[in-house]
Design a protein around this nucleic acid. Structure first.
Lengths: 156, 156
DNA sequence: TTGATTTAGTTCGTTAAAGAAACTAATATA
DNA sequence: TATATTAGTTTCTTTAACGAACTAAATCAA
């Protein structure tokens, strides 16, 4: 399909969507977070097409979300590791987990739980304001141009 | 394109991706959060194709993210309003905003700022654990089956 | 030493989604 | 009477996803 390039829009949602905004990338990231590193591991765990996975990795490497690291000679084989930038995406996935658990799970409850390794306790992601640590109430928020808004464009 | 249905997988990331996982849906939601309600308003603000927007709304209404509300007779015209379920997605967008601001913004800074209407202060979204209010450190997390994990499937 | 297995892709043909532009339809307005 | 407003629908082209088969380098098992 033809696809609009959202990466240059003055909006972090658009720019982030441009990276995450397909059906497989979040799942590839999930697998990476859960420890998967090798091409065929991703294939097996996800059921993604090989060509699709190849294309995803090449894009995500371009975007500095993954790095390709050689783990053997003869034949040369590579693992796919998250970068710091990639690991930071965990927060976005965590927000998706929370919303999915709250709004899409069956009556039985969340399909998967996140456990804090040290305490053994269940972790429930929540999005708050960094200063006040209070939930963000969308109704009480306005939007305005930030310092990085290009001066030649109309806002919103 | 052919597309794999992720909505039935035992994973909130997959299920949420299945809804949000295209390039336009997050931007349609953004506009709705910022107050846009009418079809042609979305078209003008986003530059999305009319047929694509039609398809998105029909899917998002099926999923109970939007409701279509009549605002006039003769001719019948409708507005698209977020449901509670839809409004709850703001947290996911907020996490995307934060990541985009941190990792994709130019040196100039964030393209857009969220302002708390009451205090006038800038809001910076952050993802924390609901109990401890501490950031979630992905390295210290394990995953296990939750109560809603189907019993007939292998985990991960 | 031959044939199977492992790992990591690439290639190819089919299906279907995205984009652009034109078209329809009901009504109000100039 | 002609134009504008609002909200779509239709049609055509381009391109991404899917699936299956194929390639390639090396190791392993019989």
């Amino acid at each position: 399909m033809k696809r609009t390039d959202l990466s240059k829009l003055p909006c972090s949602i658009a720019r982030t969507s441009n990276l995450l905004g397909d059906w497989w990338t979040p799942l590839v990231l999930r697998e990476a977070f859960f420890g998967t590193k090798r091409f065929d591991e991703f294939i097996k765990r996800l059921g993604i097409g090989r060509n699709v996975l190849t294309q995803r990795f090449s894009r995500l490497i371009d975007e500095d979300i993954f790095v390709r690291i050689q783990y053997q000679d003869k034949p040369p084989r590579y693992e796919y590791h998250l970068t710091e930038k990639g690991r930071a995406l965990f927060d976005v996935l965590a927000a998706m987990i929370r919303w999915g658990d709250d709004w899409l799970a069956e009556a039985a409850g969340a399909p998967i739980e996140l456990i804090d390794t040290a305490s053994g306790k269940i972790i429930k992601p929540m999005v708050v304001d960094a200063k006040t640590l209070k939930p963000i109430v969308q109704r009480n928020i306005e939007v305005r141009k930030g310092p990085g808004f290009p001066s030649n464009l109309k806002p919103r």
